[in-house]
Write a protein that binds this DNA or RNA. Structure first.
Length: 487
RNA sequence: GCCCCCAUCGUCUAGGGGACUAGGACGUCAGCCUUUCAAGCUGAAGACAGGGAUUCGAAUUCCCUUGGGGGCACCA
């Protein structure tokens, strides 16, 4: 019984996403969250959210909210948390005290100025920068002296001076570091807050995290973490360092790369389901051909073994394509629902709000076929809403001369006037023969009508557009076009 | 400078010794469809970084070089 329980808890997957609220999460951060979440769901495990707010100086107001919002947007629900490290300071202090007591850590009184100039000097001499361990072996007297001078010390870890530290990375195999390349890093800052290294280890242990799936950039500090686990006598979790997502210039994603915050993609009209699908494909693939997968399929098939080791460059074109596919896959009702906020927000202010929902529903399918993002919908459909079309007369005359355009439009007005059944099919049944009568190619004639009716040369199919616009609007617009030509 | 990771079309990737004249997707180009646009369909161009080694056989294994990335804070 006990054994069964042990085996079970051993197999229990508990992963965490542990962002720091020093900025808004970008694609890379969220991809890490997503891999953790999918891994948890695949294994019927737990996905834990932990906010690593131990840097008081760099804390960004509202960042935590944006983190939560980003996760919610993508449907990455968490089973525990959010925990806040700022509320757990006592735990880190206890761990640091223990290490101090066991002489596995020591207090360091060096000033930041000294450390800075030391680093400068090391760089100048092309030496690897790192703490020179001046305080590592202070005598009792020296320490008393420092304490007396009122300096608030930091606590540093006593890294082993020789030997190796290694661990098995689930993606990369055995990773070995020479201890001599590690310096005595800080565990506890002088403000009483822990550094990432300490807090991370304490929490991962206390929260019984089974797998740490984090970005590649952490690989270099992994030996410090392993050493810390050893010093504290704890079993380290399994590590997997995920490939990073790079910007188009192949460097680490940062503010420089434009739309970094994931919430901006929401504003730009991307669907969370498309983003989810796209993101999982950045570093993971099911097979040699599947690109489109539902969330359920992803959960079902996800595995660490199929994660690639190489960093990936974010390819926005592909995201856009995929978003378009998801957009077209929506029911027209669903599409309308999602597009309406964008219409309300971006349609020109001269257009009355609230919009006529019935009318919106009618025209949405025409935009749905063409949009790659929801943000494009207002632009694609604006001509449906404006009272007066604004366009250059020249557009009417791009394929015909003036006399012919006038003659054609007049004939069209006459036919329209007498048309009872205002639908795409009957409209086409009227205008196709009319083109023949006018001795115009359909391309030319329909092109003329298109400009008159939409003010553009590129628009949804003419007769469907006319159907949605309605007889009154169409007549009005043809007459407006005639006015433009006659004047 | 030191340490670590990585390396297949422009980009995302499949490939885990013979099934590879290296597959798919985005993008690009061409054609078809067509009242324009979009979508769709068909096709084309496009990659195993280089050099050694192992092997009957290497995109696949090993080594070196080169290239790219990351780290080296009282930041995470």
């Amino acid at each position: 019984m006990l054994e069964a329980k042990l085996a079970m808890s051993e197999a229990m997957v508990r992963v965490r996403f542990a962002p720091s609220p020093t900025g808004y999460p970008h694609l890379g951060n969220i991809r890490t969250a997503l891999f953790n979440w999918v891994f948890a769901r695949h294994n019927n495990g737990f996905f834990i959210l932990r906010i690593e707010d131990t840097d008081v100086a760099r804390l960004v107001e509202g960042a935590t909210d944006v983190i939560l919002e980003s996760l919610r947007w993508l449907g990455l629900d968490w089973d525990e948390g959010p925990y806040f490290q700022s509320q757990r300071l006592e735990l880190y202090r206890e761990a640091a005290d223990r290490l101090l007591k066991q002489e596995l850590a020591y207090k360091c009184y060096c000033s930041t100025e000294r450390l800075e100039s030391m680093r400068q000097e090391q760089m100048k001499r092309k030496q690897p920068p790192g703490y020179d361990r001046r305080c590592r072996n202070l005598t009792r007297e020296q320490r008393a002296e420092m304490e007396a001078s009122g300096i608030t010390p930091v606590v540093r870890f006593k890294s082993p001076l020789e030997g190796q530290t290694s661990f098995n990375d689930l993606l990369r195999g055995q990773i070995i570091f020479e201890n001599s390349t590690l310096d005595d890093f800080v565990l506890l800052k002088s403000d009483g807050y822990p550094t990432y290294h300490l807090a991370n280890i304490v929490d991962d242990h206390l929260m019984e995290i089974s797998h740490v799936l984090r970005a590649d950039e952490w690989l270099s500090s992994a030996p410090r973490h392993v050493l810390l686990y050893q010093a504290l006598g704890w079993q380290p979790p399994q590590f997997a360092h995920l490939p990073m997502i790079l910007g188009a210039d192949r460097s680490k994603l940062s503010k420089r790369h434009g739309a970094t915050a994931i919430t901006e993609y929401q504003e730009q009209g991307y669907l969370p389901e498309a983003m989810f699908n796209f993101l999982v494909l950045l570093g993971w693939a099911l097979d040699d051909k599947t690109e489109l997968l539902t969330r359920e399929e992803i959960i079902k098939h996800f595995s660490l073994e199929r994660i690639s080791r190489a960093a990936a460059v974010f390819n926005k074109d592909k995201l856009e394509w995929m978003n378009g596919v998801y957009l077209r896959g929506l029911s027209s009702e669903e599409f309308a629902q999602r597009a309406i906020p964008f219409l309300e927000k971006d349609l020109q202010t001269a257009i009355n709000r609230p919009l006529d929902i019935g009318y919106v529903r009618q025209l949405m399918p025409l935009a749905q076929e063409r949009a790659r993002t929801l943000a494009e919908v207002p632009q694609l459909s604006e001509f449906f809403f404006v009272e007066e079309l604004e366009y250059d007369v020249g557009l009417l005359l791009s394929k015909t001369d003036k006399a012919e355009a006038i003659r054609s439009l007049q004939a069209s007005v006459a036919r329209m006037d007498s048309l009872k059944d205002w639908n795409a099919a009957p409209l086409e049944a009227v205008f196709r023969p009319l083109a023949e009568e006018l001795k115009l190619k359909t391309g030319v004639f329909f092109g003329l009508l298109r400009v008159a009716v939409t003010g553009r040369t590129a628009a949804p199919p003419l007769f469907q557009t006319m159907e949605v616009l309605g007889k009154e609007r169409c007549l009005k617009r043809l007459r407006a076009a005639l006015d433009k030509l006659v004047v």
